[in-house]
Simulated scan of single mutants.
Amino acid sequence: MGAGQAAQAQGSNMIHLISLGTRLGVRALAKDKQPVPVQPIDQATADKNAAANTAATIAAQPKELVLHRTPADQLPKKGADQITALEAQLEQCHAAMLATPGGIICTPEQRTAIQSAAVSVARARSNWDLQPYQQELAYYQAEDARRQQAAAAPAN
């Protein structure tokens, strides 16, 4: 009974960490920015500004996406199905990110499925390190937020 409660607690902790990371990421993206007055500019200045905006966009992206996939021969017997399911959910988001440079990576339904899969892993393998999966999901969430912000930005 104690091991089940520990797994459940770890699953709850993971969900708490994911939601905390999401809230912090949204807050960081939602910082108030002072409006910049629009002034007419020449083409050279416009080109320079476009290059600076592109560099700033690239710099603002999360630095590194690390995919954590467990080779089949290294999967533990207990919990292998749950780990494989979690990694498959994350792989769907990765494929969406590569397939659609401006589209949504992880829908709310997919994030829920990933969280449920992570809880299943925690229940099956209470000692399994879920942090790499949390970091990957956080990357996708940050990239989704960046893409939504870019899509909502007015075109000049």
Rank of each mutant, 00 (worst) to 15 (best):
Q61A: 12
Q149H: 09
A117D: 08
I18E: 02
D32P: 10
Y139T: 03
A7D: 00
P132M: 03
A155C: 09
M97H: 06
R146Y: 04
A145M: 08
A3M: 15
R23V: 06
P132E: 01
R23E: 15
A28I: 07
A99Q: 13
A153M: 05
I15M: 11
S19D: 14
Q92G: 10
L130P: 02
Q82H: 05
Q141H: 05
R69V: 03
A145H: 03
T54N: 10
T45S: 09
W128F: 13
L75H: 15
L17Q: 11
G102R: 01
R125P: 06
Q135I: 02
T22C: 11
D129W: 04
A88V: 01
C93G: 14
K33V: 06
A117V: 03
A122G: 05
R23C: 00
S19E: 14
A30T: 05
A52D: 04
Q148F: 05
T57E: 09
Q39H: 12
A138N: 01
V66I: 10
G4L: 08
A151F: 07
D32E: 14
K31T: 13
A124L: 09
Y139F: 14
A3W: 08
L86S: 03
R147G: 04
P76E: 13
A99H: 12
T22Y: 01
V38A: 15
A7Y: 01
